[in-house]
Design a protein around this nucleic acid. Structure first.
Length: 633
RNA sequence: GCUGAAGUAGCUCAGCUGGUAGAGCAGCGGUUUCGUAAACCGCAGGUCGUGGGUUCAAAUCCCACCUUCAGCUCCA
């Protein structure tokens, strides 16, 4: 008998060599039904893996991220099986589970059409109905090579050639694939699939290699889960900022300037509100705003190192015998502000903020709406400080970042990236800096992920991700410590209390990242229905007929006096028509005015998506909307 | 940059195998004066992404370029 310890700390005694699935059956029938794989002492294995000694056992279902991975991985095998039975000449690359589903890279002399995908999907259902088990088999390397050489599958042969140790095959029905596993017990567990599309992908991600076709799919054990997932994808499409940006007249793109938006008046209102907000915060937190030249000689970039490492992303131009570049980053030039006079330890931290226009020559294929542009406006800052000031400063930055994101109802999550192998600078400084970052995160009670060796060569960093209204993650803010790039390369010093010159540390940080990208994210996050403080038009006043235009005008004037962004809709249209239009423009408040309102000095409030809220005294509405704007709720 | 798909009116789209463009919405002009998501009538609007080629004839076929979209990082 051996003891299996379950996640709830209970112990189950079973005969040695009992397959894990039998343990699941003893726990509950539904668990045995839902289980996809098992984690034995932390190692994920197939359900029929025998339990040979005392161990901790956890069964993985679709509810566990690791269970989903198994599910999707098995689905990708099932898809490969279906593809092979429809297209026997297909050769296979790799087919892993990914964050939201799975894919398989295939080599086939035909571009797969949507109709092909449907056929594959149908075949997958047939194969799933056969409910063949996934069978694991350990094979010798030469045996494995022989198998795939006979199948004339060069990709698998290449993979096996690079493998050491145990090689395993998995078979499901007549389909056998090289695979580390583990897999779901049988194909029948795989119920609802949707193949989402195809794209090109180079073998091993290298553009020198042949391009394979990557088929993407997603699968779920319950129909509702698949439906919900597809609905979410639809929802994301409806929220597409490129479409909303045009419809709501925020910004447009034109062939004449690829990768750069034309900000329309309404979009510019949002831009300016964000700028105003961030400037108020900067002012209250001791930042000093600067503005540095956009066009500078290449000498600057040679000194900073960008000329060697970043030149392909820079716009370079020749002006009167000299080579210039549009700045792709603000950091090097901020050192000129630092250095324009001798700095004392009393000046530190010196927080230099710059809301600067940057130009980066992104390769054409990478451009995409506001998310990837060639011209960006960054809410950048460079903070110069003494090493002993790091903890306090990071602490303030975390507070700053949390405050900003709370306003937008984003959930931030933090990742700390530590010293990479090719790091520069004093190892002691690195140690101290990483400890400072950890201390600041802990002090704020922040749970964070650790990305070992993922820091920049010049210092460790904290990256902040946010989760939007439909659960998507975005990388936005960053806090990077820098001992080398700015301090060393630009030979920055301050005079310490003892009269000697010392080297400061620099912090690069951004909170929105870029205004362009951030406005794109906000547009999708709010699905275009911006909160009142950001909304380009905050109130629309709708007189019922033109005999109330005058009263409407007086309402507009009262709001204008309080700096509310208001428009009077005095067109010759029925009120239903006006309401429909302002609803589609996602304006937060509509004020309907007619005889009743005129007589009583009131307005009838209609809130976006909520409908009629009844009549209120004008003065009361003015003070409540002002409160809402000031509090950014 | 690479692979694939696409580009027709401000927007969404129709226009089959070649015979020189059409709808809805938006816009403009009128009629209507109306109480919470679309009143009615009329008008105007396009070098069919750009350039070249084939043809008696090209939105349609061919080539090049531009732009956009999906992907090119997830590693049996």
């Amino acid at each position: 008998m051996v003891k299996a310890k379950l996640p709830d700390n209970s112990i189950l005694e079973v005969d040695s060599s009992t397959p894990a699935i039998e343990v699941a059956k003893r726990i509950s029938r539904s668990l045995a039904e839902d289980a996809l794989a098992v984690k034995i002492n932390g190692k994920i294995s197939d359900l029929n893996t025998p339990i040979t000694g005392d161990c901790e056992v956890k069964f993985l279902t679709f509810d566990d991220p690791e269970g989903r991975e198994v599910y999707w991985h098995s689905s990708s095998h099932l898809m490969a099986h279906a593809i092979l039975s429809l297209f026997p000449e297909a050769k296979f690359g790799v087919g892993p589970a990914i964050e939201d589903g799975f894919y398989y890279d295939i080599d086939i002399n035909k571009t797969l059409s949507p109709a092909d995908l449907e056929a594959i999907e149908k075949k997958m259902h047939e194969l799933a109905d056969n409910n063949e088990p996934f069978v694991r088999k350990v094979v010798q390397k030469d045996e494995a090579l022989k198998f795939f050489k006979e199948k004339k599958d060069p990709y698998k042969v290449e993979i096996i050639g690079a493998l050491d140790g145990t090689i395993t095959f998995y078979s499901e029905g007549e389909f056998t694939d090289l695979c580390r596993g583990p897999h779901a017990p049988s194909a029948g567990k795989l119920k609802y699939f949707k193949l989402l599309g195809t794209s090109g992908a180079y073998w091993r991600g290298d553009s020198k290699n042949k391009m394979l076709q990557r088929v993407y799919g997603v699968s779920f054990p319950k129909k509702k889960m698949l439906d919900d997932h597809l609905k979410m994808l639809e929802e994301a499409k409806l929220r597409d900022h490129r479409r909303l940006g045009r419809e709501l007249e925020l910004f447009v793109f034109h062939d004449i300037a690829p990768g750069a938006p034309f900000w329309l008046p309404k979009g510019m209102v949002i831009f300016r509100e964000l700028e105003k907000f961030i400037r108020e915060e900067l002012d209250s937190r001791g930042y000093l705003e600067i503005s540095t030249p956009m066009l500078v000689k290449k000498d600057l970039w040679e000194q900073s190192g960008h000329w060697d490492h970043y030149k392909q992303n820079m716009f370079v131009l020749d002006v009167e015998e000299e080579t210039y570049s549009l700045k792709p980053m603000n950091c090097p030039e901020s050192t000129y502000v630092y250095k324009h006079r001798t700095r004392s330890y009393r000046d530190l931290p010196l927080r230099l903020a710059e809301i600067g226009r940057l130009h980066r020559n992104e390769i054409s294929g990478a451009l995409g709406g506001m998310f990837r542009v060639r011209q960006i406006t960054m809410d950048d800052a460079h903070i110069y400080l003494r090493p002993d000031q790091i903890v306090d400063e990071i602490n303030d930055l975390i507070d700053f970042i949390n405050k900003v994101y709370r306003i937008f109802k984003f959930e931030p999550s933090y990742n700390l990236s530590t010293k990479p192998d090719d790091a520069m600078g004093d190892p002691k400084l690195w140690e101290q800096a990483e400890a400072s970052l950890k201390k600041a995160l802990d002090k704020n009670g922040i749970k964070y992920g650790l990305k070992e060796k993922d820091g920049a060569f010049y210092g460790p960093k904290i990256d902040i991700q946010i989760k939007d209204a439909i659960g998507r993650d975005w990388q936005v803010a960053t806090i990077q410590l820098d001992f080398v790039m700015l301090p060393e390369r630009f030979d920055l010093t301050y005079i310490d209390a003892d009269g000697t010159a010392k080297r400061p540390v620099a912090i690069h940080r951004a909170i929105f990242g870029s205004f362009e990208r951030f406005v794109g994210i906000l547009t999708e996050h709010y699905a275009g229905a911006f909160p009142t403080w950001l909304s380009p038009v905050q109130v629309a006043v709708l007189p019922i007929t033109d005999s109330f235009n005058e009263y409407g005008k007086s309402v507009v004037d009262a709001l204008l006096k309080e700096n509310v962004r208001v428009e009077l809709d005095d067109r010759n249209e029925k009120v239903g028509y006006k309401i429909r239009e302002w609803e589609t423009r996602k304006v937060p408040y509509m004020l309907v005015v007619g005889q009743k309102e005129k007589d009583s000095g009131t307005v009838s409030i209609r809130k976006h998506r909520e409908g009629d809220k009844g009549a209120t005294q004008l003065a009361e509405f003015v003070s409540s909307i002002k409160k809402e704007i000031v509090e950014k709720t």
